[in-house]
Design a protein around this nucleic acid. Sequence first.
DNA 1: TCATATT
Length: 445
Amino acid sequence: MAEGKKEKNSNEESVKLFVGQVPKHMNEAQLLSMFKEFALVDEVNIIKDKTTRASRGCCFVICPSRQEADKAVNACHNKKTLPGASSPLQVKYADGELERLEHKLFVGMLPKNVSEAEVSALFSKYGIIKDLQILRGSQQTSKGCAFLKYETKEQALAALEAINGKHKMEGSSVPLVVKWADTEKERQARRAQKAQSQASNVPNVDSQHPSLFGALPVGYVPPYNGYGYQASSVMFALYGAPGAYGLMQYRLPPMQNQHAFHGIIPPVNQGNAIRGATPDLSPNMGPRNYAIPPASYVGSGYPNVPALQYPMAYPGGMLGHRPLSSSPGSVTPTGANSNSAASSSPGTSSGGQLEGPPGANLFIYHIPQDFGDQDLANAFQQFGRVLSAKVFVDKATGVSKCFGFVSYDGPVAAQNAIAMMNGFQLSGKKLKVQLKRDNKQNNPY
DNA sequence: TCATATT
């Protein structure tokens, strides 16, 4: 259906919108015709999973101008819910688009006594200044740099090329620095860099515990974890709760995963707590998964972590609802069967947002701050097959919002989880565990 | 405090 002039969209004028709450079954043609009712649209690109190519439930919409983009936003954002979506369409400028349209420059090496007016006078020669601020400290003292926005990219570029490294302000011996301002993404990357370099200031395990560290595979290089910092579970065992290391997420090397110990297994089942291959381990496995060589923990108790404080070892074993248990002689003295430990449930997922059937999805609040998806899954897997477990985190900081979801494959597990876990005290707060609100009304478009 | 997903 996409006919008409389809000029290349790298056009400076065109604007990219991000659209969320797009049902995964919709295709680009359908979305295009929908958005065309409200604005000129050049293109729709569904955002797909890199490997499965399945829709991720969102798309980009390219509009030929800012005006058209605004029309689409105003007409659609939070205004309509597509059939199958749980909440209204989210339509906004894609990440980086606003910045791209701002033509923002950074000016460095400003003498501290230079005022806005003086900077403005200089830069106005190259175009219309839409915004200008000198960065200042607590006493309003200049930090010697400024941000500056022009009306057009051409003006900004002209100023950059004319002034950067060439123009010296009166009384200054060094020329001004003029660059494109960092984008939000660049700043985030920088923050992450910094956080990482701080995180690597942890005690040196090698030198302090050479024998234990030496138990790791020789020459083994753990996979990159996205933070440039490798932590071994042995370190966790030595130093206690990894939450002390801040926001970092840790990933265990695959070899160690083979022995990953999932914290909520009753003692009597220790023998089962050594997992075999663990296809269900998320690559984002949270810090509370301890890979401990069997000899290190059998008979020596558990790592001292919150995950172990659940109402798991119920001496009457009334918790033992185990849909997955093939239970060949799996009834143990505690009643909690071996499934939790031996589970090979390939469907268990902690990352995705798979929903279970009605009545099988839980909303959980007051989750401990340092819990991740996998921790949540671990905490709730004893009540049934966990289809997904998700702790929500702040997009910018990665800090947990302390609420999340657990989905089971059936309502019985959910009810058991509510019965056992609602009000359960964890890290000083009582979990609130209730059925997730059902958002799925039938929505027209 | 109820599934937020940025090729």
